[in-house]
């Protein structure tokens, strides 16, 4: 709640895992860390196991090897404050907009007064004021996704994981939502890990971009985005970064140069 002014150090993440399903190696070696309140984008070709990585990051899937530490403790949604925004529509059709946004808070057992206050605030930020008592089938796809984002941010989670949340939206809505997410993130600072295969989106949003190779996935590049918000996708710096991302995304997995760029770890 008070993150904006207080800037409490939230959710520093340490990841060092590999994962396979039987003989299928999904992640060869994924090693990176995320600073508290950092906005990190993870990009990779489709089918490189990004969703699996997010499941591991939030602690609902145990990696075959290694660990994910959130502020030094193993990631676990039951004990830690983690929230998630999904790629596919995930609002409950039987709950109103307000009740959907309350879901995370209710699971955490928040008090009624706190729930009301937080929901009122977040509803205003995501621009759903006036739609609180609507059911999901009565609002547009973009609004439904805003409900899902509001649900994730309402919990005041230290770590928010987003799995291609805008992939099903049309271009104008997508752009507006990107600006809105940045807005929310600036209002209520916390650690965000945002998975996307849209490089422009990654450069637009992230403090840092991690690029994964195709399966078996590993991090082939790590790029810092030293641009201030709001970023102009047509500026030369933006386009140069985007070109760099494209280069690494298409780089052969075994490229020797990749090792040199293997991130901090």
């Amino acid at each position: 709640m008070h993150g904006h002014t207080q800037m409490t150090s939230r959710a520093k993440i340490e990841v060092d895992t590999s994962h396979s399903y039987g003989d299928l190696v999904v992640h060869e070696s994924i090693k990176f860390s995320v600073a508290a309140n950092e906005f990190v984008c993870i990009c990779g070709p489709s089918g490189c196991g990004k969703t699996t990585l997010l499941d591991i990051l939030c602690g609902i899937l145990k990696p075959s090897r290694g660990h994910v530490l959130v502020d030094g403790a193993p990631a676990d949604p039951k004990t830690q404050s983690i929230s998630f925004v999904f790629q596919e529509p995930s609002t409950f059709p039987w709950l109103t907009v307000r009740e959907n946004i309350e879901t995370g808070l209710r699971i955490k057992g928040a008090r009624r007064a706190d729930i009301d206050a937080k929901v009122r605030e977040i509803v205003g930020i995501v621009g759903l004021t006036g739609f609180e008592s609507y059911y999901p089938h009565q609002i547009s796809g973009g609004m439904k996704q805003r409900v899902a984002i509001a649900r994730a941010f309402a919990t005041d989670a230290d770590l928010i994981l987003m799995d291609e949340p805008f992939v099903s939206l049309d271009q104008p809505t997508r752009e507006r939502m990107q600006r809105e997410v940045l807005d929310i993130w600036r209002h209520r600072r916390r650690t965000v890990i945002f998975v996307t295969h849209n490089l422009e989106e990654a450069v637009f949003l992230g403090d840092r971009i991690l690029i994964l190779s195709a399966k078996p996935a590993r991090i082939v590049a790590e790029l810092r985005v030293p641009l201030d918000h709001p970023r102009d996708p047509l500026s030369p710096e933006f386009m140069a970064l985007r070109a760099q991302c494209v280069h690494w995304l298409h780089a052969p997995a075994a490229a020797s140069g990749a090792q040199a760029l293997d991130p901090i770890g």
Partner: peptide, 23 residues
Amino acid sequence: IHRKVGVVHGASKLWILRNVVVP
């Protein structure tokens, strides 16, 4: 996905039964 919404927020099995399965 509805089940997963509960799981990622740390919901118990009983919570998911009452708030996801039953509805």
